[in-house]
């Protein structure tokens, strides 16, 4: 009797372990089954490289949104990566204990703030600031909801990811690297930046890639501050629409081919994310082998 119970529970545990496999399979099947036919109907080149998105006229080209996602993410990298990596270095190698006690929870809090709160903050603070300062005073034009605004916000949002992954990568470097450099007469900064940080390179890269994944998949914060005009991106102070915001904005009322085209947009986004994940595991594996 006891053996039966043991065996049953073993299989219960096994089935639970398979839940995540099942989830991934279901997600792939449902997304691809609903999205790929639309790509076929529209034509893969018309869909991926088409510059016009006019659901009313049955024209579905998502190049503007693909570019929008890429530009906004690139902007987020330009802003978030240097600050993130430098902060990670600070926390791992420069920070005195009594300051660490405040910086660490601050980074955790940044990671915990919901994206809709970030978006709201962007809407009430960043957008007016960009409109008044960059738009009017510096004469860049635009109404504040722009690629630039979204990049700044996303740059802030990916900070905690880059910082925490980077910090643990830097801490994992054996102390002998640092001590060796010091013994050769290098200053503290020189030892950290030219021996410790290069040794943690792949870990830091992994953090950056995770951050890119987060930026490209972010939806709510971007919708609230990027302007969302469905046209080719025109400039960094002009509005832009990303793949994610395109889905959320139009899904509510889309029907037929329009709806399928939106799901196909999600398929493209999903493929982007899978590629980023692949890159992440490659970088991580290379780091583990080195």
């Amino acid at each position: 009797m006891k053996d039966v119970k043991e065996t049953i529970m073993k299989y219960v545990f096994l089935i639970c372990a398979c839940a995540s496999i099942l989830a991934v399979i279901l997600i792939c099947v449902f997304l691809f089954a609903n999205g790929v036919p639309a790509i076929g109907k529209i034509g893969i080149f018309n869909f991926l490289l088409g510059e016009t998105w006019k659901p009313g006229n049955d024209i579905y080209g998502i190049l503007p949104f693909i570019l929008g996602s890429i530009y906004v993410t690139a902007g987020a990298i330009v802003i978030g990566v240097p600050i993130g990596i430098l902060t990670a270095i600070f926390m791992a190698r420069f920070c005195p204990d009594n300051i660490y006690r405040f910086v660490k929870p601050a980074v955790d809090l940044l990671a915990g703030i919901p994206s809709v709160v970030y978006g709201f903050f962007g809407m009430v603070v960043l957008v007016p600031f960009v409109r008044d300062f960059f738009g009017r005073q510096l004469g860049f034009g635009g109404n504040g909801s722009s690629m630039f605004t979204a990049s700044v916000m996303l740059g802030i949002m990916i900070l905690p990811t880059i910082i925490s992954v980077g910090e643990s990568a830097i801490r994992a470097v054996p102390n002998s690297y640092y001590e060796g450099a010091l013994a050769l007469g290098a200053t503290h900064e020189r030892s950290v930046f030219f021996t410790v940080v290069p040794a943690a390179k792949s870990g830091i890269m992994a953090g950056v890639i995770l951050g890119i994944g987060r930026a490209i998949g972010e939806t709510m914060a971007v919708i609230m501050i990027a302007g969302n005009q469905p046209r080719m991106p025109k400039g960094i102070f002009e509005g832009v629409r990303t793949m994610t915001s395109n889905i959320v904005i139009e899904m509510g009322y889309a029907t037929d081919l329009h709806r399928e085209a939106l799901i196909a947009t999600a398929v493209v986004l999903f493929v982007f994310i899978l590629l980023i994940n692949l890159l992440f595991s490659l970088v991580k594996r290379r780091g583990a082998n080195a």
């Binding site: 997600i27 490209i216 998949g217 939806t219 899904m251 799901i263 986004l269």
Partner: peptide
């Protein structure tokens, strides 16, 4: 872990 929340939403 890497899938964006909007993709979960659509699924």
């Amino acid at each position: 872990t890497g899938i964006p929340s909007i993709v979960y939403g659509l699924f």
